[in-house]
Simulated scan of single mutants.
Amino acid sequence: MSEITPDLVRHLGVLARIQLSDEEVERLTGQLDVIVDNIAKVSEVATPEVPATSHPIRLHNVFRPDVPGDMLSVEQVLQNAPDAADGRFRVTAILGEEQ
């Protein structure tokens, strides 16, 4: 059995800046305890001969070649824009910065 305690879960909640109710602390204590125990079991059987994997099935690149296609004109792109100027989208300044 691992050493996940309600106090540890509360501490983790503080570190993650998550306010946890007493009910959530109790539920998460049990869930985290099971997770840590399962990780320990896997660690017991993991051997250096078995390579670590991030996915159970070998992945391959499924992207198509990047080939340019038909392009929209600037007028077509901006025709439904709520606000545009000088061939560009006009947006409001963010974070109080005026340019």
Rank of each mutant, 00 (worst) to 15 (best):
H55W: 15
L20Y: 00
A85P: 00
V74G: 04
M71R: 10
E97G: 06
Q19K: 11
D22W: 04
Q99M: 13
A52S: 06
L28E: 04
A81N: 06
E75S: 09
R88E: 06
H11E: 08
K41N: 14
T5N: 03
A81R: 07
E75H: 04
R27P: 00
H11N: 03
E23A: 05
Q31A: 08
E3L: 08
L72S: 05
F89I: 01
A40M: 09
L20G: 00
I4V: 11
D83I: 00
G87D: 02
I4Y: 00
E49T: 06
A46M: 11
M71G: 06
E44V: 11
R58L: 09
Q99H: 15
D70T: 07
P68Q: 04
P68M: 00
L78Y: 03
E44F: 08
S43R: 12
I39Y: 11
P51E: 12
V25Y: 01
T5R: 11
N80Y: 14
S54M: 13
V67M: 09
L28N: 04
R90C: 08
A81I: 06
T92A: 14
P82M: 07
V91N: 05
I94E: 05
I57P: 03
P65D: 13
P65E: 14
P65G: 04
L20T: 00
V9H: 03
D70E: 13
Q76M: 05
A84K: 10
E3A: 05
S43M: 15
R64I: 04
V74T: 14
S54L: 15
T5W: 05
D7W: 04
E97Q: 10
I35W: 07
R27D: 13
L78M: 03
T5V: 00
P82Q: 09
T47L: 10
E75T: 09
L12N: 06
S21H: 01
A40I: 06
R88I: 02
S2R: 11
R17L: 10
E49C: 02
G96L: 11
P56I: 08
L95F: 12
T29F: 01
S73R: 06
V42P: 00
V62F: 10
E97K: 14
Q79A: 08
E3K: 13
V50I: 15
I94R: 13
A40E: 15
K41A: 15
R88D: 03
F63V: 02
N80D: 14
D33C: 07
H11C: 01
L12M: 12
L28S: 01
R90T: 11
S21K: 06
L78A: 05
Q79F: 01
D7G: 03
G30F: 10
R10C: 02
A16I: 00
I35S: 03
A46S: 15
G30N: 13
G96P: 00
P51S: 12
V74L: 04
F63H: 05
R27W: 01
V42S: 12
E98F: 09
